[in-house]
Amino acid sequence: MKFDGFETRAIHAGQEPDAGTGAVVVPIYQTSTYAQDGVGGLRQGYEYSRTANPTRTALEECLAALESGARGLAFASGMAAEDTLLRTVLSPGDHIIIPGDAYGGTFRLISKVVERWGVSWDAVDQTDVEAVRAAMRPETKVVWTETPTNPLLGITDIETVARIAHDGGALHVVDNTFASPYLQQPLTLGADVVVHSTTKYVGGHSDVVGGALIVADAELGERLAFHQNTMGAVAGPFDAWLTLRGVKTLGVRMDRHSENAERVVAALEGHPAVRRVYYPGLDSHPGHKIAERQMRAFGGMVSFELRDGEKAALELCERTKVFTLGESLGGVESLIEHPGRMTHASTAGSALEVPADLVRISVGIESGDDLVADLEQALEG
């Protein structure tokens, strides 16, 4: 019998009880090598844990099921996943399109590393699909989308941009970290590859660093698996186990993240110290209708600008009590940060530089009343 419910897949996909012991939870196979049944006789396909490990396999199968993909691959970090993907699908002379407010780490990888291979790139506001179409070149091989974007929460029409990319012979890659597979499944909308920093919502507890690629095409999955093994930046068994544990509660966590974020947004919208709130759940958000169509809910990430500028933003980040000042996002605890000085410092002086008065918050699953009260006291100074 096939079960289609997301929460059921999150708990059971790739996670059958252990055949030998009946253990309900996938064991941590903390081993580097495996006994073989004769020379070249692999036992259940395992020989060396860089190539494959049963705990990592369980995570990869689960992620593929959650994103409705043909294959999932787990890495040591989100950046390791991105690096492996780009080295697999790009060659010198190729061109890539990235978002106009791409994540700082992605921007750094492409502008400081990938460009040195002879790959050119353009940053484009992908909330305008015609701007994406205009940026396409004969040598464009990848259109890289974040939706929602980090940190300005821009929304891209995945279906339309996927068609534009395919019409130009390019792959459409979607960083789905902010939404998670629970809120959005880009492969079902036409994308070719989904990228996750599993450190964030998928793991969900701020206790593990990891990344993942999920692909629609099995042949591309084979190519990526070859490079994953060759380059070696794989998820270790304990990291895979922690991530798999987090996946089990992804659905219920994302519901609470989204509910709390909506309460926080309502409080920020009416506060005189706040100049602008970025959240796709707002009717006033330019991408609201698209987000409503391609997302189950609007997520736990909120950004806002303060009327009194950068100094006020920096002071706010230091006055919160429940919101912890720190980088990253997607954990059960609420975090606050100043993108211009922290996660997006690498974009300073570039076309992707973020507003100096911008604050980004990752709304956790604490009491919504406490989160609102904490922001209000911090805004009052």
Results as ranks from 00 to 15, higher is better:
194 V>A: 10
164 I>T: 13
164 I>M: 13
194 V>T: 11
170 A>W: 04
189 L>E: 13
196 H>G: 10
193 V>P: 01
152 L>K: 07
202 V>T: 03
155 I>C: 10
159 E>A: 11
174 V>W: 02
205 H>T: 10
183 L>H: 01
186 P>E: 03
190 G>F: 01
199 T>D: 13
187 L>K: 02
172 H>C: 06
183 L>D: 08
162 A>S: 15
181 P>M: 04
198 T>D: 03
194 V>M: 06
191 A>Y: 02
166 H>I: 12
193 V>H: 03
200 K>A: 13
188 T>Y: 02
193 V>L: 11
174 V>I: 09
166 H>G: 05
164 I>N: 07
155 I>V: 15
177 T>N: 03
178 F>M: 15
173 V>T: 07
198 T>G: 05
208 V>N: 09
169 G>L: 07
153 L>D: 14
152 L>W: 05
192 D>K: 00
195 V>N: 08
171 L>R: 09
174 V>L: 03
179 A>Q: 06
165 A>L: 10
211 G>W: 07
209 V>W: 10
193 V>I: 13
182 Y>Q: 03
166 H>Y: 04
199 T>R: 12
196 H>T: 14
184 Q>Y: 00
178 F>W: 14
169 G>I: 13
204 G>P: 06
185 Q>Y: 10
188 T>G: 03
155 I>T: 15
183 L>C: 08
175 D>F: 12
168 G>A: 14
173 V>M: 06
208 V>Q: 14
172 H>N: 09
182 Y>K: 02
200 K>V: 12
174 V>M: 02
200 K>Y: 12
207 D>F: 08
151 P>F: 13
156 T>G: 01
204 G>H: 09
153 L>P: 03
199 T>H: 11
157 D>H: 05
174 V>E: 04
190 G>P: 03
173 V>A: 04
184 Q>M: 05
182 Y>M: 08
181 P>N: 01
151 P>L: 15
208 V>S: 12
192 D>L: 01
180 S>G: 05
184 Q>H: 04
202 V>R: 00
198 T>I: 04
196 H>P: 04
150 N>H: 12
202 V>W: 00
157 D>K: 00
201 Y>C: 09
183 L>T: 08
200 K>G: 05
185 Q>F: 08
165 A>S: 06
150 N>I: 13
188 T>V: 14
185 Q>E: 15
158 I>Q: 02
209 V>T: 15
160 T>W: 02
203 G>H: 09
154 G>H: 06
198 T>M: 03
197 S>A: 14
165 A>F: 08
178 F>H: 15
181 P>W: 02
173 V>P: 02
210 G>A: 08
202 V>S: 00
193 V>G: 04
171 L>K: 08
178 F>E: 15
156 T>Q: 01
182 Y>P: 01
188 T>M: 11
180 S>Y: 00
169 G>Q: 12
155 I>E: 13
150 N>S: 12
211 G>L: 06
192 D>W: 02
182 Y>G: 05
170 A>L: 07
168 G>N: 11
154 G>P: 04
199 T>C: 12
180 S>F: 00
152 L>F: 07
155 I>R: 06
